[in-house]
Amino acid sequence: MPDVKFCDIGANLVSASPSTFDGFYFGSQVQSHPEDSEDVLERAKRVGVREILVTAGTLEEAKAAASKCRMWNEKSFRKSSNSINNDREGADDDEDGSEGVFPKMYSTVGVHPTRCDEFEEKYDGSPERYLQALKTVVRENADVVKAIGECGLDYDRLHFCEKETQKKYFQFQFELAKEFDLPLFLHSRNSREDFYEILKRNVKHLRKGAVVHSFTGTREEFEELLALDDKIYIGVNGCSLKTEENVNVVQSIPLDRMLLETDAPWCAVKKTHFGNTFLEGGENSNRIQTLFGTPVKPKKWQKGSMIKDRSEPCQIATVCEIVAGCKETSYEDVAEACYRNSRDLFFSPSSS
């Protein structure tokens, strides 16, 4: 594959309950295959993923994500050191001089809009104590925590958390961004007016910027968001590329304001998605399947297998292919621009 660099700015690799990366699917209590997160990380490194931001949606997930990222980073360096005299394909030097067989792993701290009831259900119903606990996680894991979130509004799933509660605790989390001088990792679904109003009111707290991830809105929506501040970015993944309308919107997003992500294990690019047309033949030939083979069903898993319809960080290359195709530019140019944007938002010298 070309010598490109990626940062997957959003991957759900750690959850409060067993996930697809632990071998559990569709709520089943039966494990389809062994935990395979290290294979997933090695595949990501092989396609050029240099960093992954593991997203958290609750206090407990934030604790687990920070701990797991630190463990992965230590194990990555250890495995690299142990094989220093061997052929270490994919274990190249990172920009900061460190080595590893996995991408460098980082995490977020925040509460997803559909989980905002936790502010009033934990710590004897004290939102302030819950907020203080989030602050403790940021403070004690400053080496790996790179953003506040995932936070925002989701009006498609009000059965999980009602609208007024979401709005209240979205607002609440700007205090974290302000106190720790970190960028925001934002979520917005079917909530354009309220989301924009709250973001606009708090734009003064966005000194480090923000990304509106997994964007599926309109051109008018992203234009009004980008106009709020020049450090606001739009995150694009497989869900951003489902329909012809989605792809037309992505085609209009300026490359200097775009970030790439997978939202793994969700938002895989499927054969039914319009964006898939940019992978058929020609220069865009689905690099991932060529490199790692055809994905299999969970029960057909063998070590090294990718799972059908399970998104994972290596598939950021597929997202990049589609963006390059719809923008009629090169894969390398898209990767370079989006990687530079990711470094500027999450890893600028003052925030490292």
Rank of each mutant, 00 (worst) to 15 (best):
residue 149 G to C: 07
residue 137 V to E: 02
residue 119 F to S: 03
residue 137 V to P: 04
residue 151 C to S: 15
residue 162 E to R: 13
residue 123 Y to P: 01
residue 180 F to M: 11
residue 124 D to Y: 12
residue 107 S to M: 01
residue 187 H to F: 07
residue 150 E to P: 11
residue 130 Y to T: 13
residue 155 Y to P: 09
residue 107 S to G: 06
residue 164 E to P: 08
residue 121 E to P: 01
residue 143 D to C: 09
residue 121 E to S: 06
residue 128 E to L: 13
residue 107 S to C: 15
residue 119 F to A: 05
residue 103 P to R: 02
residue 163 K to H: 11
residue 102 F to T: 03
residue 173 Q to G: 07
residue 155 Y to N: 10
residue 185 F to S: 14
residue 101 V to M: 12
residue 169 Y to V: 09
residue 179 E to I: 14
residue 145 V to A: 05
residue 153 L to Y: 10
residue 111 V to E: 00
residue 138 V to N: 00
residue 156 D to H: 15
residue 164 E to T: 14
residue 166 Q to P: 15
residue 134 L to M: 08
residue 184 L to I: 15
residue 172 F to H: 10
residue 153 L to E: 08
residue 108 T to S: 15
residue 101 V to L: 09
residue 129 R to Y: 09
residue 156 D to P: 09
residue 120 E to S: 08
residue 110 G to Q: 00
residue 137 V to H: 02
residue 130 Y to R: 01
residue 139 R to A: 13
residue 134 L to A: 04
residue 111 V to Y: 00
residue 143 D to P: 09
residue 187 H to L: 11
residue 153 L to D: 09
residue 108 T to Q: 02
residue 166 Q to I: 09
residue 102 F to D: 02
residue 150 E to S: 12
residue 101 V to R: 01
residue 187 H to A: 10
residue 126 S to P: 06
residue 123 Y to D: 10
residue 176 L to G: 02
residue 109 V to Y: 00
residue 141 N to S: 07
residue 148 I to M: 06
